[in-house]
Structure formats: structure tokens, C-alpha cells
Design a protein around this nucleic acid. Sequence first.
DNA 1: AACGCGGCCAACCGCCACAGG
DNA 2: CCCTGTGGCGGTTGGCCGCGT
Length: 339
Amino acid sequence: MGRAPCCDKANVKRGPWSPEEDTKLKSYIEEHGTGGNWIALPQKIGLKRCGKSCRLRWLNYLRPNIKHGGFSEEEDNIICSLYVTIGSRWSIIAAQLPGRTDNDIKNYWNTKLKKKLLGKQRKEQQAQARKVFNQKQEIKRESEDLMLPVGVIFRTPYYWPEQQHSWHIPVTNNASIQYSNLNYNNQTSSFIKHFPSNNIVTATTMNSQHSSRDISLIQNQLHDLHPSTVSMVTTDTCHTSNVLQGFGNFSMASDLACVNQQQQIDGSMRVFYGLETMDVATNGSTNTSTSTESISWGDISSLVYSPLLVSDYEACQQRLLMPQDVTFEESSYFAMQTQ
DNA sequence: AACGCGGCCAACCGCCACAGG
DNA sequence: CCCTGTGGCGGTTGGCCGCGT
């Protein structure tokens, strides 16, 4: 048995409000206030309306200083920024826009703003996809030159963050890769990555050559950071990087998160993969797929920017500009290694 | 002119939180 | 602590309207 309805639906009028009803409600509230009880209010005025309906009508339409339509560019920006920050909390967003109601903003978002942003997103992502594709092609060429599996070599040191100690990024719904700075000999760094899907840990360095002592130092630090992680280590050395690889349990407990909200990380990643994803096949051809259905928070969150409201988000995006293509190719390679 | 379709928006629905008894 | 009433909120619906065929 469900909750009792707030009013007798058989005896209340529904549908659009007539001017007479509006006048009655407005003049009564302006004179007496709501009386703190919306449910009782319609009976007092002689309106055959549900109390909730009266409240909604007042708040969304009759209340003084209500603005309808004609959203400005500034209001657009505020709505987008807040949506990125807090999601569909329309009442909170409305509180930042004097004269706007949550219902108005919600309608505006659903009918116009979302589409407007998606159009913008498509352009940006097409440009991004082209960029990523070119980088992948370059990496692939170098991999082939060195007879190594695609994705093992990282030739994008400028992407590696300098300040962030450690963070992790969800790549798919239930997988993540963690990056950690690992300093040794006070000169250079290596980076730990974890692939939960096959529980592999890798440490990658940016030095061109390492002595066996260097490798040993990296292994020790890797073990210090994640004692139960590396049960087996192999090394590959090439002119651009060394890759240490191991298996075992991996704890995220001590890791620092780049940003507070998981959603924001998801949103950041969509900058790279987005609604339009580009799959690079081994023959170099590309497949682009587009989805316009089911637009989620993450779909939109990568599009907007506000220096006031989401400055951390922007900073995070900057920091997250790391080898985006460290994904499935690597995973498949390491999965292959475990067999 | 008639019809279908999609966009827009006011209003409704159902759930949740909270206060008071 | 439980129950009930109410306010508040976000998601959804349905009707109106304009446009294209």
C-alpha cells in the first residue's frame, strides 16, 4: 500500500491554471502570505486545487520578479558551470540566478543548453580525436621500429605531471590505471601503473639508459610503495624507457586522488574519449562512432569551463593530460605477458 | 487543408527529508 | 522510536504550437 495522496484527486482541478485562479491565489498570498501550510491554503481561498499545485504555481509563475525565457550568455555559463560542479541540483542552481526558477532552468537545460553544448563538444572532440590518432600513429611507428608491442613505449614525457604525487583514473566502468611518481637517485622519476583487470603493476622511467643498480632502486621503491604488489619483475629496456612489470595485490588506500569527485575524473577522461570515440585498428584505419542518446553528466562535464567555479577542475584537466592512449593496447600486451 | 513530427514548457508524479506529536 | 503530515525536489508527462511535407 502506497503513501496516501496529499489531496483528494477526485475533487481537485488539474491542468492549466485560469487567469481567475491565478488572481485568487496571487492576491491572497500577497495579502496574507502562505500561512505556512500549502495544503490548507486552497480551501481557504476556495480554490479546487491541490496544495502542492498552488505552491508550484506561485513559485514558478506568480511570485514577483520572476523572469521567463531569454537566458543570457552569462546565465548559460553559470548554469553549465554549476551543472558540472553539482549536477542536476536545479534548486541550488536557481538560487544563483535571481528571478529564475528551478523548473525554468531544468526545462532550459533539457531543451536547449544540453544540445547547444553537445554541438560544441562534437567539434572539439573531432579535433581531439585527430590529435590522439596522430600520436598513436607515431607511437606505433616507433614500436615497430623497435620490434616491441604497441603501447609499451612512452614518448610523451611532457605529459607526465610534475607535482602530483599519485592519482588514479578510471578508464572503464570497473578498471582504473594508477600513476604514481617514484623518485630515485634525485634526478629522475618513474611512474607506476596498475591494471586491476589483470592485476599488473608497471613502473616506467623516462631515462634512456639505466644501470642494473638503477633498475634495482626502482624495484625497491616500487616494493616500498606497494609491498605486496610486485611478486615478479621483468624489465624491458629501450632507448626511451624502461618498463618494469609485476603482479600481485594492489592497494589504492594510500593513493592521493587528483580531484574530489569521481565524476570529475570521468568527465576529464571524456575529453579524450568522449561521445565520439576513435578506435585505431592495427591497419591504421579509424572507426568513429557517435552516440547522442542518454546524455550523462560525464558527457557534458568535459565541455564547460568556469574559472570561478571549477578552477580545480581545470587544473585537474591540465594535470590529467598524460598519455591518453595508455589503455587497451597496453592492457592487452601485459595480459599477453601473463599467459 | 490535413497530417505528422518535434520542440517547448507548465504541470504533475513520486520520492525523500524533516519536524512534530 | 515510530508514525504522520508537509515541504521540497528532480524526473517525467502531456498538451499546445509551429513547421515541413
